[in-house]
């Protein structure tokens, strides 16, 4: 049982007009085997939270804390966070020319587990995980994210999650740009991994569509860099009908 604890997190970015505050005091606790949906309008700070958790250098933490089972995450480098068990499924994964998927996966697995995986077992694991995500075996020979369709990129993110076995995963708008079939395959993958490993999930989304496939235990509404409201599944249903106007008008 692990706990990812975010307390009074305040984050800014540098812009041409100077420093801009994005997160204004976020409190959030996620336990293993829980699914938290973060919803909110564009520009509310959802992705900033995701990238701050992963340690992207663009974001400056001005205050607050992030701990993973009591360990200070903010003190860790990007790779240390991943080795501690954090995983970010990105909305726009970048291309890495000349690096094949299979080379990349093996290198990442070796880094995460501290030793090279046993070859035969590993090949079986990769093949199995790819099959479950309906990915062609030839995928392994392609260069990372190069020429991937939107759906392939997202499947590739989930494939990594399946093989790297993190304790907590942040899914940053994994549903964007997916058709219904791809959305189902990706969602099944998330549910399967959670079922097998007790993964804690922070699901960031703009739409309620993905919540039909991945059932959240908690829903948090993000507005203007803060959590404006939280509740259970029913909150998502309400957002589906009412949208975010209510929060924006209130000027939280």
């Amino acid at each position: 049982m692990s706990v990812l604890d975010i307390k009074d997190l305040r984050v800014s970015i540098e812009t041409e007009q100077g420093s801009k505050e994005i997160l204004r005091g976020v409190d959030l606790t996620i336990n293993s085997d829980e699914i938290h949906a973060i919803m909110g309008p564009n520009g509310s700070g959802k992705s900033t939270l995701a990238y701050t958790l992963a340690g992207h250098p663009r974001y400056t933490v001005d205050g607050g804390s992030i701990t993973l089972d009591g360990e200070d995450v903010l003190e860790m480098s990007v790779d240390e966070r991943a080795r501690a068990g954090l995983f970010l499924a990105m909305q726009y994964p970048v291309e890495i020319p000349g690096v094949t998927v299979s080379n990349f996966l093996r290198t990442a697995k070796t880094a995460i587990s501290g030793e090279a995986p046993r070859v035969r077992e590993w090949i079986g694991d990769v093949r199995g995980a790819m099959e479950k995500l309906r990915m062609d075996p030839s995928f392994g020979e392609r260069n990372v994210n190069e020429g991937f369709s939107g759906g392939e990129k997202k499947r590739h993110e989930i494939l990594q999650m399946e093989l790297l076995r993190p304790r907590f995963a942040v899914l940053d708008e994994t549903d964007s740009g997916l058709d219904v079939d791809a959305l189902r395959i990706v969602s099944e993958g998330v549910n399967r991994i959670k079922g097998e490993t007790g993964l804690g999930v922070l699901l960031i989304t703009h739409y309620t569509r993905i919540l039909r496939y991945i059932q959240p235990d908690h829903v948090h509404v993000f507005v203007n860099g803060r959590i404006a409201e939280q509740g259970g599944r029913e909150l998502a249903d309400r957002l589906e009908e009412e949208g975010y106007d209510r929060y924006l008008k209130a000027g939280v």
Binding site: A54, G55, H56, P57, S77, V78, D79, R81, A82, R83, F87, L88, M90, P93, V94, E95, I96, P97, G98, V99, N103, F104, T107, A108, A111, I112, N143, Q160, L164
Partner: peptide, 22 residues
């Protein structure tokens, strides 16, 4: 590119190596 590789647990130096070789 470096961020992506490092976010998968790969240390910075190894990530650079992968990017150059790639």
């Amino acid at each position: 590119q470096l961020f992506y590789l490092q976010s998968r647990g790969i240390e910075e130096e190894e990530a650079r190596r992968l990017v150059v070789i790639g």
